[in-house]
């Protein structure tokens, strides 16, 4: 058994971009593919030892959420290898709850989909309900919940099904201070049990206070990876500089970098 919780070896994830239906059809029938690809993750390699708390930072569009979905196993990369040692549970703002069903039903549904048996879920139910702290709403359909309640329930379910690796994708940004504190306590408990946490956040303060390692993504590439203090310092400095730019400069920079993320597949091959 490896000492690493997560290993990425030259991982690239592309998304298909079509200009029209013709591209789409040609892409389907040709062996080598046709049309454009957007490189959401570009040749990413890193190793995360077990028990670390990894913060993933980066400006919008840098590939943070793609990364979290790849780690959770929902998205499969086109190139490279992802090795995950353990069960992963993802907490995202769109928590994957069925809005027609009650909170209680969602607990079982999510548990089932994560591979738990009914008795295991029943045993966890009281502590999930207690943690989510949504009172009698637990038996109401989730569509009647406020966004804070939804994220609390989503978070409560994900942490209680006892994953080896917990991925938190900006899910804490909607909760209030009390809930945030509760989550941090729970995550510290996780941390002390030697479990691995991936923490995706826009708040450098949160990352600094909680993470041990930081991965800084920029336009699908790893810009820096290392211990928290060093990387957060560099990232904060970058953000400071970046925020001083005019809107025009920012937009030009973004555009230039984004253009680099598109590749055009060989059109000649597509006709074979």
């Amino acid at each position: 058994m490896s000492d690493y919780a997560i290993e990425f070896k030259n991982v690239s994830k592309y998304f298909r971009v079509y200009k029209g239906t013709k591209d789409k059809i040609l892409d389907l029938i040709s062996r080598s593919g046709y049309g454009e690809r957007f490189i959401a993750l570009n040749d990413i390699s890193f190793q995360l030892p077990k028990g670390e708390v990894l913060g993933i930072v980066g400006i919008n569009g840098s590939g943070k959420s793609t990364m979290s979905n790849v780690i959770a196993g929902g998205l499969k990369p086109e190139k490279g290898e992802v090795i995950i040692n353990g069960d992963v549970s993802l907490v995202a703002i769109s928590a994957g709850l069925n809005t027609q069903l009650s909170g209680r039903d969602n607990i079982e549904l999510k548990g089932l989909m994560m591979g738990l048996s009914r008795s295991e879920i029943k045993a966890l139910e009281p502590s999930i309900i207690d943690f989510a702290d949504i009172g009698r709403f637990i038996d109401q359909p989730v569509k009647t919940y406020s966004s804070g309640m939804k994220s609390r329930l989503g978070f409560a379910i994900s942490v209680h099904i006892n994953p080896d690796i917990l991925v938190i994708d900006e899910a804490l940004s909607v909760g209030d201070q009390t809930f945030y504190k509760k989550c941090i306590d729970k995550m510290n408990e996780f941390k002390n049990e030697g479990k691995t946490i991936i923490f995706i956040s826009h708040s450098t303060a949160q990352v600094k206070s909680f993470c041990t390692q930081v991965l800084w993504l920029e336009f699908g590439k790893v810009r820096e990876y290392g211990p928290v203090n060093e990387i957060v310092e560099h990232y904060s400095k970058f953000l400071n500089d970046f925020n001083k730019w005019t809107a025009q400069e920012k937009s030009n920079y973004r555009k230039e970098k984004l253009d680099e993320q598109y590749i055009l597949l060989n059109r000649k091959k597509a006709h074979n």
Partner: peptide
């Protein structure tokens, strides 16, 4: 098999919940 059965139950439940 077990998951198929349970998920089917919730599917029906969700459909007629309103």
């Amino acid at each position: 098999l077990y998951m198929i059965g349970r998920l089917a139950r919730y599917e029906t439940k969700a459909q007629y919940s309103t």
